[in-house]
Amino acid sequence: MMYVFWSAKSFKAPTWPQDELAFHMDISFDDVEAAEKRLLGLGATKPAHQPGGDHWTVLLDPSGQPFCISSTR
């Protein structure tokens, strides 16, 4: 598997949830609590607005782009 990332000089993080997102990523984990802890340790943040209830958790990557994590079950 190969991942490619690059920086966009003109990138401005969305003001979520007010702004429409250009894309959205959902990631599933067997152990969501451990994944959340690891992602927060890597620089993600957890916003107060959590519309998923018990179904998913919204995190923000270091640039401010939202993504969701959930259980594979």
Results as ranks from 00 to 15, higher is better:
Val4Asn: 13
Val4Gln: 11
Val4Arg: 09
Phe5Pro: 07
Phe5Asp: 06
Trp6Pro: 02
Lys9Asn: 09
Lys9Thr: 04
Lys9Ser: 15
Lys9Val: 13
Lys9Trp: 06
Phe11Asn: 09
Ala13His: 03
Pro14Asn: 10
Thr15Ile: 12
Thr15Ser: 15
Trp16His: 03
Trp16Val: 10
Pro17His: 04
Pro17Asp: 05
Gln18Val: 09
Asp19Thr: 00
Asp19Tyr: 00
Glu20Ala: 12
Leu21Gly: 12
Leu21Cys: 12
Ala22Met: 13
Phe23Ser: 12
Phe23Gln: 12
Phe23Met: 11
Asp26Glu: 12
Ile27Thr: 01
Ser28Ala: 15
Ser28Ile: 15
Ser28Glu: 13
Phe29His: 08
Asp30His: 10
Asp30Met: 10
Asp30Ala: 09
Asp31Leu: 04
Glu33Asn: 07
Glu33Phe: 04
Glu33Ile: 06
Ala34Glu: 13
Ala34Gln: 10
Ala34Ile: 06
Arg38Lys: 11
Arg38Asn: 09
Arg38Trp: 13
Leu39Ser: 09
Leu39Phe: 05
Leu40Asp: 00
Leu40Ser: 08
Gly41Val: 06
Gly41Ser: 01
Gly43Thr: 00
Gly43Tyr: 00
Thr45Ile: 05
Lys46Ser: 04
Lys46Asn: 03
Pro47Gly: 07
Pro47Thr: 08
His49Phe: 14
His49Thr: 11
His49Ile: 12
Gln50His: 05
Pro51Gly: 03
Gly52Glu: 02
Gly53Asn: 10
Gly53Trp: 05
Gly53Gln: 10
Asp54Pro: 13
Asp54Thr: 15
Trp56Lys: 04
Thr57Leu: 13
Thr57Ala: 14
Leu59Glu: 01
Leu60Pro: 03
Asp61His: 03
Asp61Lys: 03
Pro62Asn: 07
Pro62Ser: 02
Gly64Met: 12
Gly64Val: 08
Gly64Lys: 05
Gln65Ser: 12
Gln65Leu: 12
Gln65Asn: 15
Gln65Cys: 08
Gln65Val: 11
Cys68Gln: 01
Ile69Ser: 01
Ser71Ala: 07
Thr72Cys: 13
Thr72Phe: 04
Arg73Thr: 12
